[in-house]
Design a protein around this nucleic acid. Structure first.
Lengths: 146, 146
DNA sequence: ACGTGTTGTAACAAGAAGTGTTACGATCGG
DNA sequence: CCGATCGTAACACTTCTTGTTACAACACGT
């Protein structure tokens, strides 16, 4: 369970909200969203709470409250979701400082930092190429062939 | 401490072995390598053990034993190191199965699998563009300007 | 104004993974 | 045969993620 499934949770929730919105249901409760994910409503609130901080969704309290998208699904990229969740670097440098008396230990960190940044940028470019609308369309398309 | 520093450890070790090899020291003990990383020899043996399984290094036991590269540093890409360490997927799908009665829950998994695979491929392309020799050269170059 | 439904959060448990340490058997060169 | 070194198991510690329960804050309808 090491790898992050948080992006999956968030994208699924947004796609589900996008579909409901298209059907006229603009507001959804965390419980309804959790039902689609087969998980706990608190998980949904936590995830969507981060997306709200990034401005992708809004929530209203009180009776008849819930969550809504703030934009068209076609205007939300998976990259934005990823960053809203506090994207962590793919790779980390040494846990502690390496031996600086060694030529490699002294100079390798900036080099690896650059390599890792390039890999990170590549992931971002890839995620930026998909929107919530794309994901939803492909999800529904895969079910039209019985 | 969430992110993987294993790639850093392994690349650092290989670069250090490459430098030593260039200086005539073909065999290094895990203790010498650990000294450059400022960590425990067992950490090094664990990392290099995975690289040995991938054929990137060899080890010899007994007195005067240690580790050696099996190829020129210019022929080892960072991608190979990454894969030798058992590269895990960047993102995971749902921890459990989502609700299959929901159209999104039913169809989203293959869609996300594709998106994640594309991101993975992008990282691999990036890492394939750097070799141990590159990393070592850049590491040493950064120290020539006092 | 009240009651109800929902969010917002805190607290906690369980599990997984990474890092580091100690210990000890296995192996090989001299 | 001895000593150095690998190979590996066992363990502790930390951090992260997921999931759960609990409860206060809040807002809408009546």
């Amino acid at each position: 369970m090491a790898a992050n499934s948080r992006l999956t949770t968030a994208v699924h929730a947004l796609a589900w909200m996008a579909l409901a919105s298209r059907r006229g249901r603009e507001v959804m409760t965390s419980e309804e969203i959790a039902a689609s994910l087969a998980t706990n409503p608190v998980i949904v609130r936590r995830s969507l709470g981060e997306l709200r901080a990034a401005g992708l969704v809004v929530s209203r309290r009180g009776a008849g409250a819930g969550w809504s998208l703030t934009r068209e699904p076609a205007a939300i990229t998976v990259l934005e979701v990823h960053e809203a969740l506090g994207a962590e670097p793919l790779f980390a440098l040494h846990p502690g400082t390496p031996n600086l008396e060694c030529p490699v230990g002294q100079g390798i960190r900036p080099v690896l930092t650059e390599v890792y940044a390039a890999a990170d940028a590549a992931v971002r470019r890839e995620l930026a190429g998909h929107t919530i609308a794309d994901v939803l369309a492909q999800t529904l398309a895969s079910q039209e062939t019985p």
